[in-house]
Design a protein around this nucleic acid. Sequence first.
DNA 1: TTGCACAAAGAAAACGCTTTCATTCTAATG
DNA 2: CATTAGAATGAAAGCGTTTTCTTTGTGCAA
Lengths: 369, 369
Amino acid sequence: MARTPSARRRAPVEHAVQYDGGVHEEHSRNDSEASKAAVSIHDVAARAQVSIATVSRVMNTPQLVSPRTAERVLAAIKDLGYVPNAFAKGLINRASRVLGIAVPDIHGEFYSELLRGADAEARKLGYHLLISSEAHSADEQERRGSLAFGLIDGLIVMMTEPNRPLWQEMRDAAVPLVVLDADETAAGLDSVIIDNTLGAAEAVEHLLESVKPERCFFVGGPAENFDTVARAQAFAKALEKRGHKPGPEQTVFGAYTLEWGAGWAKKMAESGRLKNAGVLAGNDEIALGIMHAAEDAGVRVPGELKVIGFDDTRLAMLVRPNLSSVRVPMAEAGAAAIRLLIKRIERRTTSPVCERLPTGLVVRGSSGA
Amino acid sequence: MARTPSARRRAPVEHAVQYDGGVHEEHSRNDSEASKAAVSIHDVAARAQVSIATVSRVMNTPQLVSPRTAERVLAAIKDLGYVPNAFAKGLINRASRVLGIAVPDIHGEFYSELLRGADAEARKLGYHLLISSEAHSADEQERRGSLAFGLIDGLIVMMTEPNRPLWQEMRDAAVPLVVLDADETAAGLDSVIIDNTLGAAEAVEHLLESVKPERCFFVGGPAENFDTVARAQAFAKALEKRGHKPGPEQTVFGAYTLEWGAGWAKKMAESGRLKNAGVLAGNDEIALGIMHAAEDAGVRVPGELKVIGFDDTRLAMLVRPNLSSVRVPMAEAGAAAIRLLIKRIERRTTSPVCERLPTGLVVRGSSGA
DNA sequence: TTGCACAAAGAAAACGCTTTCATTCTAATG
DNA sequence: CATTAGAATGAAAGCGTTTTCTTTGTGCAA
């Protein structure tokens, strides 16, 4: 128990860790000595001639320490370049200020926008973001580690389609949880969802300005995908509101790819049903495929065919004609999820909340201005 | 010092934390009790009737414990759903198996591909990835926290242009470091760089098949951007190799945007210099802008103008005509950086390494097949 | 002067783990 | 049978914090 700080470790050398950004320390950069030179609270305490408790208080509850002392401690901290050990803090506080986010795949504009929004918001609120594409591994042990359980303070999970294993893993995680893209308030979880209704309705209304209801189509992505399903339903509902119940061939499902869109449009063109039609696509890439196939079939866009994409990715503004698209605020969704999660972590009282983000049509060239 | 485990905390209840994924625990999901029910090594020890040392050994050095005992401990671990506390482990091991990656901006296909590759590789090797768009904050205190120093075992920093503050922060960080996109072996750091030479040379060769050397242009991004500079140099060198030293107007710099590309091409078209020219763009978006402007000016691509992009993003395959582009293995770069970093962390001996990833031309429609 | 509230600071416990060192037990060796 | 090497296990220190509990010091009312 004789734990004399200065005896326990080498006496802290003056300016031991004072960096000047110079080049003379190149060699020590990556070798073990350099990184072992961790300055602890004891070193600071010794240098400032106070106890470690006081040092801690200076950093956490400054009002409990006299200005004179605080000044001395602060100076020592600066001199030594002291940074509190994150693990020790975490061990006591049971918090790391690290948030996890599990997305199906980091690929593409869509998810990168989500990450971007989440990261920015987390950073703003003093948290860090640990990403993790989905744990597909079958081995439970391996999966368990995959989300850094025990390290993260909370987790955002994006659920784009039914996924039992992931769901299971989430429930096992003893951390605050926010679900993205699926309303799970019923299961007691905070959720953030995209309200596809508004945007889809606007799109349909827009199409109906120049296209007959029976010539309107929704060309979606995978039939299991939550968003595609919601968008298809919103599409159907908007048509019904205008007195037309869409037939089964008016809402079709495939994949979120250019090829699927092009394939569908090609078939339609061959049977002469592409002309004077209006299409709401499940995403921008599908829309682009449809435009390509239309071009190949000699169907002019927007003259003879109106096309509207979904997501309003950068792609929409880059292609010609510019693609009308339903804007989906992915960055905002990421940010909202972060806010919800942090609120849940910091004051764990409120009952589950579902935040619903609006979508809206952005009209550009492809649907005829 | 009387630290009788079973007295210290509530005696571990049978099946206390046995989840079945059912819905009946909805209420306890997000409240504090649920997450406080952390099972510690003491609980496992008590249940298996061994000391905590033995439990630890079962997990870390199984060869030191008898099969009979191990079995009992393993059972207890499973029953209780025990997950070792990451902070306590970190405090001892001085390692979190979390890697940081600092990129200028998460935006866009380019960086998301990088993240994707890095994340996949990190996961494969049993590490986690903590992302961080660059710390732009001027306040040093704030910046310091921004990279989660003390928590991460190592850091990958993407350097796309000279950036003193970031550089400074990196050097101050007492963690293993890998630099992406800039060769810093001279500064004692492992690096991963894209070898723009090969791809640019191939592109130039390809252009020269149908275009005179004095009609070849490089339309780059920002003049400060390392990649743009490297690509411009590679372009110039390839032309020189063919006996033509490019004039100053043959390599120009602007921004990584469609607008810049379009603006440049428009000017060129107006002065009649776009026809029969060949352009290597700094990225795909610039290339696309050039194609648009060419179309507007009645210059046919690839008939009268060859265009080659850079990066080979998804965009290249989505537009028409398909964009020839220099493929840049961003995912591989991310993975390579992770590998280098982990190697550095785990056996900190080798001298600084610079891994150079090749680029290569992918010929598509825009440069005339 | 005595007592007392209150501010300031220190001592030490606790967080959950790993690991060294010490102890016990078994079985093989002389 | 006595000794001892070696395997299996336990006790406890230590990692770097935060925080509770104590102690010390100081000014002020009685």
